[in-house]
Write a protein that binds this DNA or RNA. Structure first.
Lengths: 129, 129
DNA sequence: AGGCGTTATATCCGGTCGTATATATCATGG
DNA sequence: CCATGATATATACGACCGGATATAACGCCT
């Protein structure tokens, strides 16, 4: 317990970056086969989800997702193999990084003041972790 | 070239977290011996700087800075040994993390779309790097 | 005594981010 | 042939963040 949580973002270039929001969304899309459903699953507005996916589309030459309109279930969205690799790399890096951070900051953990935090609004970031 | 930049934050508990903003500010305070001067040096408003230091004060039992009012030069602020250790640990972790990230995301770098980014406003985050 | 530069604090305001909402379009199934 | 549920897109509103500004208190130095 009391092990610190690391959150990180990788900035490839001016506009293109990947952080916890996009990765969580990609996972939700992968698991639900739908952008709207995935967004609902993680408590994210459709607009924001669409903007993030759009940003990813503008970021890499290789597509991260493929979408289809109409049809049996109204359409859907799938994560490409490239997108899946993005998720994998991010999550694996996260694990490696977490152990590094835990080792280095473990002594400091002792001096952290723990607040009651009663009735605090839970941010989207917190929900996604 | 084209090596990705990593930005990270460590969340110890609900309110207490350490990221690039606070660390850069601490370094600026350490180097200038003053909160206001340090804030000016990194292009941060005094209000924000004060709030960040205040947040650090609420985060750890051990003080990160010590301040004095009045006197020869109007007063000043020093970074404690604990604060210096915070900086050190963060920067060293950053270096380790950067090599990890670079190794893992190097192939993906090739597919990144580079935008012209002409006339874009430079954010504080970008200035701090 | 008064000036100076700092910490410390309050108030106001504008921009930005995100949510909510509305609407068009699409393709399949009943 | 139309209802459905999804993508895709625009607009409007609210909240929050951060900057700008003002002011008080403080202690050394001239």
């Amino acid at each position: 317990m009391a092990t610190p949580v690391v959150r990180f973002r990788i900035d490839f270039a001016g506009q293109t970056s990947v952080g916890p929001g996009k990765i969580s969304l990609l996972e939700a899309i992968r698991d639900s086969g739908s952008l709207s459903q995935g967004a609902r699953d993680i408590g994210m507005s459709y607009r924001r989800a669409w903007l993030l996916v759009e940003s990813l589309k503008q970021s890499f030459r290789e597509p991260v997702t493929v979408a289809s309109k109409g049809g049996k279930d109204g359409g859907g969205m799938q994560v490409t193999e490239f997108g899946a690799a993005l998720i994998r790399n991010y999550r694996e890096l996260e694990r490696e990084f977490a152990t590094l951070a835990e080792r280095r900051f473990h002594p400091i953990t002792r001096t952290v003041i723990r607040h009651s935090n009663s009735g605090a609004k839970v941010s989207l970031r917190a929900k996604l972790q």
